[in-house]
């Protein structure tokens, strides 16, 4: 069984769930910008604590967070390793021929915390925002671009459908891999070309299935009066509430604390 968390939503009614999606997106962008400007260990600590507090506010369990981090673990480990081994500086200690610099340890830890915070915070956005609200928010935030003839509405619709079909296709891929394995397919051995070739029996059925699904979906959308480019109304429009002001205020306090730590 595959278990993919990308774009998955966990229903709830926490303050984090109720905050306007547009506010959440903007704050996430600011959060990420701030995260890449800080240098002091204290700032990292504040970031980690704030992210943990947000997770708890959203009622998201530790296990769920781990699940969203897991698929990206190799990137985290790789980044940490690169920083650890390739940062030049005074040798802190050395094992055999490999010298590890104090700066390397410092950078590796910081990069890891940075990535963990960023992944967690982005997952919080998708975990606490229904996909439709998310796409509506993206559509709303990008609406100025519509004047430049960018098909914002269609892009938003595509994004929401993509999010919706990721788990479906992941499960399908898992099933096809199992089915071809049952026919003796071997995905794990041989050179790059052999391996790439061994993926054909998986990728081709997967593409065919994706096209079939797309066709079905198009018919189902047509049958419900969808016309590309036509104006639509919304069941729930993103609307700002006092809660959003409070969310903004919390973020300002947090940002101020980080700045203070940096300047101290």
């Amino acid at each position: 069984m595959v278990d993919i968390l990308i774009g998955q939503y966990l229903a709830g009614s926490s303050a984090l769930h109720r905050t306007d999606a547009r506010v959440k997106i903007i704050l996430l962008i600011l959060y990420a910008a701030l995260l890449f400007m800080i240098k002091k260990p204290l700032s990292y600590a504040i970031f980690a604590a704030f992210t943990a507090a947000l997770t708890m506010t959203g009622g998201i369990g530790f296990k769920t967070v781990m699940k969203s981090i897991k698929p990206l673990r190799w990137i985290i480990i790789f980044t940490a390793a690169v920083n650890l081994f390739f940062t030049k500086g005074e040798a802190f200690f050395s094992v055999w021929k490999i010298a590890i610099a104090a700066e390397g340890i410092d950078l590796a830890v910081k990069m890891t915390v940075r990535l963990l915070c960023l992944i967690t915070a982005s997952s919080l956005l998708t975990l606490t925002t229904p996909p439709m609200r998310l796409t509506d928010a993206v559509e709303s935030l990008l609406s100025p671009l519509a004047r430049l003839k960018v098909p914002v509405r269609e892009l938003a619709m595509m994004m929401s459908i993509t999010l919706r079909f990721i788990p479906v296709l992941a499960e399908e891929a898992d099933r096809i891999i199992k089915a071809q394995t049952a026919r003796g397919a071997d995905f794990g051995s041989g050179g790059i070309i052999r391996r790439a070739k061994s993926l054909v029996p998986v990728m081709l059925p997967l593409f065919i299935s994706a096209f079939k699904r797309a066709e079905d979906l198009a018919a189902a959308m047509d049958a419900r009066c969808f016309i590309s480019g036509a104006a639509r109304t919304k069941l729930c429009e993103n609307r700002l509430t006092p809660l959003d002001a409070r969310a903004g205020a919390v973020f300002v306090v947090f940002a101020a604390a980080v700045m203070a730590a940096e300047l101290w």
Partner: peptide, 14 residues
């Protein structure tokens, strides 16, 4: 042990 999956035609590829 041959295993035929549900809707096996979805795995045709050649």
């Amino acid at each position: 042990v041959g295993l035929v999956f549900q809707y096996p035609e979805q795995q045709l590829f050649a």
